[in-house]
Design a protein around this nucleic acid. Structure first.
Length: 459
DNA sequence: GTACTAGAATAGGGACCGTA
DNA sequence: TACGGTCCCTATTCTAGTAC
C-alpha cells in the first residue's frame, strides 16, 4: 500500500466496494482504514464526509454544470497531481461561495480541479455535490467502520400497521397528525433551543416557540432529573398539510401553529447525534415517558396558558377490533390516522415496530396517457407512467417490480410505433393514493396493477 | 427452508428560496 | 419574475443477512 495520498488507491477501493456484495463492502473499507498510511486514511475520511455527510453541503449539483465538465467519455488533459490539501481548500471554497455569480465561481473551481488532478478526483467532487455514489453504502454503513465520522440524525419512525407485529396488549393509541415532524433540542445549560426536521435540518420559522419551549422544559426538569440536553419529539402543524409546509418551510417566523409534543428525552451529552441506545433507554419506556409528559403538561398549565404547545391525546386499545373502531372514529374526526405504540418500548433513532401507523388508502382506475424512462439504475427501463385524473396529468413512478418495469417499458415503446392496436397505452391502471391535493393532483400515487378486466374510469 | 429485517435504491406532489 | 433545486411529506422493491 502506498504511503503517500494516492488517487489510484482510493479509486481502486471505491471500485472494489461498488463491485462487492453484502458485508464484504464494509470489510474492504475496514481493511483500508486499518492498513493504509495515516495521511491516506485522513484524506479518505475527509472525502467520506464530502460524499456521505448530509451536513456538508456545496450549494450546487452536477445538473447545473456545463456538459463538458460532466462528460467523462472525453479524456481530459490534466497535470496528474496526487491528492493534496489544496484540493480540500478548493472544495471548502465551493461550499462557502455565496451571492451573485456564486454558481459561475463554483463551476470555475471545479474546472480548476479537473485541470489539476487526475480524472477520478473530478468525479469524486461531483459525487460530493450530488451525495450520490451508487456504490451500495451510505452514511450509516460508513459509521459502522469509522464510528462518529458522519453526522447521523435520526428520529423514531413507524412501520405500517401489521397485527402480527403486535407483541402484546394493550397498546397505546395516539392520533397521526399530518404536519411536519419536529425535534426540539434544548441545551438546558446555555438555554439554546433548536428546531430540526426529521432529517436534521433546521426549521427557523419555529423560533417564536422558543420561550414557551424553555418554560415547558423547566417544568419537565422539575418533574424528573434530565440530562443536559432535553429533546421534545413533536409534530408541528399550521392548518392543512400544504398550509403547514408553507408556513414551516418559510424563513419567516410562524404566527399561528401547534407543536403537538408526543415524546420527551433527556440526554447527557451536548450532541444529540451521539446519543446511544443505552442513553435513550435511561429515559424509560414509552409508558413512562408519556406519564412524564402528562405530569409536565398538567403542572405547566397551572401557571401558563400555552399558545403553541399541545399534548396529543393518548388512548388504550385492548384488541385489534378496538384499534379499528378507534381508527374509524379518528377518520370521522378528520384525522389522518393512528399511531399504535408498544407501551414497554424504548425510544430508538430508527424505524421500529414498536411504533406502527394506520393511514387511509384509496385507489382509482385511471387511463394511461404517457410514460417515462427511469434514471440511475433504471435507465433503459420504465421510470413511471402518466395517468389522466380529471384532466390533470399525474406521474406514477412507485409500486412497479423490476420485471413490470421491463415489460411495460417494452410494450409502451412498441405502442408508440403504431397508432392502432396499442397494448398498454390507453389502458386503465389501478392507482393507490393518499388524498386528492388542493391543486387537483394525487398525493403519494402508487401503481397497483393494470386493469385488463375493465375499461371504465373510476371518476 | 422460510420468514423477517435493515439498508439501499427507485419513484411521486408541492412548498420555498436562490439565482439567472 | 420564472425556474431549477432542495427539502418536506411519502410509497415501493430488491438484496443480503439474520432469526426461527
Amino acid at each position: 500500500m502506498s504511503t503517500t495520498p494516492n488517487i489510484d488507491a482510493i479509486h481502486d477501493l471505491l471500485v472494489a466496494i461498488g463491485a462487492a456484495k453484502g458485508k464484504t463492502k464494509l470489510e474492504l473499507l475496514e481493511n483500508f482504514v486499518k492498513d493504509a498510511d495515516e495521511t491516506q486514511v485522513d484524506y479518505l475520511k475527509r472525502l467520506l464526509k464530502f460524499w456521505f455527510d448530509d451536513q456538508v453541503k456545496f450549494g450546487i449539483t452536477s445538473k447545473q454544470l456545463p456538459k463538458q465538465l460532466t462528460d467523462f467519455s472525453v479524456a481530459h488533459v490534466t497535470e496528474g497531481n496526487d491528492l493534496d490539501s489544496d484540493y480540500f481548500i478548493a472544495m471548502r471554497e465551493i461550499q462557502l461561495a455565496t451571492g451573485t455569480g456564486a454558481t459561475d465561481r463554483r463551476i470555475k473551481m471545479l474546472e480548476d480541479i479537473r485541470t489539476k488532478y487526475e480524472q477520478p478526483v473530478l468525479k469524486w467532487s461531483l459525487w460530493a455535490l450530488d451525495k450520490n455514489l451508487k456504490i451500495g453504502i451510505q452514511a450509516s454503513s460508513v459509521n459502522k467502520v469509522i464510528p462518529g465520522l458522519l453526522s447521523e440524525f435520526g428520529v423514531m419512525l413507524a412501520h405500517p400497521f401489521n397485527v402480527k407485529k403486535v407483541s402484546g396488549w394493550p397498546r397505546m393509541i395516539e392520533p397521526k397528525l399530518d404536519g411536519m415532524r419536529t425535534l426540539v433540542v434544548v441545551d438546558t445549560v446555555d438555554w439554546v433551543v433548536d428546531f430540526y426536521t426529521r432529517a436534521g435540518n433546521p426549521i427557523p420559522s419555529l423560533v417564536p416557540m422558543t420561550m414557551e419551549v424553555i418554560d415547558f422544559v423547566r417544568v419537565v426538569m422539575d418533574e424528573k432529573e434530565m440530562g443536559r440536553i432535553v429533546c421534545l419529539d413533536a409534530e408541528a402543524t399550521s392548518g392543512s398539510f400544504n398550509e403547514s409546509v408553507s408556513a414551516l418551510r418559510s424563513d419567516d417566523p410562524i404566527e399561528e401553529g401547534t407543536l403537538h409534543v408526543f415524546d420527551v428525552l433527556g440526554l447527557p451529552g451536548t450532541n444529540l447525534l451521539e446519543a446511544s441506545d443505552a442513553q435513550l433507554e435511561e429515559m424509560g419506556t414509552q409508558r413512562q415517558r408519556r406519564k412524564l409528559l402528562e405530569a409536565a403538561f398538567k403542572a405547566y398549565k397551572e401557571t401558563n396558558k400555552p399558545k403553541f404547545l399541545e399534548l396529543p391525546g393518548s388512548y388504550w386499545a385492548a384488541s385489534e377490533d378496538e384499534i379499528w373502531a378507534m381508527y374509524e372514529a379518528a377518520r370521522n374526526n378528520g384525522l389522518e390516522g393512528l399511531i399504535i405504540k408498544d407501551p414497554d418500548a424504548f425510544y430508538r433513532k430508527k424505524r421500529d415496530y414498536a411504533w406502527m401507523k394506520i393511514k387511509a388508502e384509496e385507489t382509482m382506475d385511471l387511463q394511461i396517457i404517457g410514460f417515462f424512462e427511469g434514471t440511475g439504475a433504471m435507465v433503459g427501463t420504465l421510470g413511471g407512467i402518466v395517468v389522466d385524473f380529471k384532466g390533470e396529468q399525474v406521474k406514477v413512478g412507485s409500486g412497479f417490480s423490476l420485471s413490470q418495469r421491463g415489460e411495460l417499458w417494452e410494450a409502451l415503446n412498441a405502442d408508440m410505433e403504431k397508432t392502432a392496436g396499442r397494448q398498454v397505452m390507453g389502458m386503465l391502471a389501478e392507482v393507490q393514493y393518499q388524498e386528492v391535493t388542493p391543486a387537483g393532483s394525487l398525493r403519494h400515487p402508487v401503481f397497483k396493477r393494470l386493469r385488463t378486466d375493465k375499461a371504465e374510469i373510476s371518476w
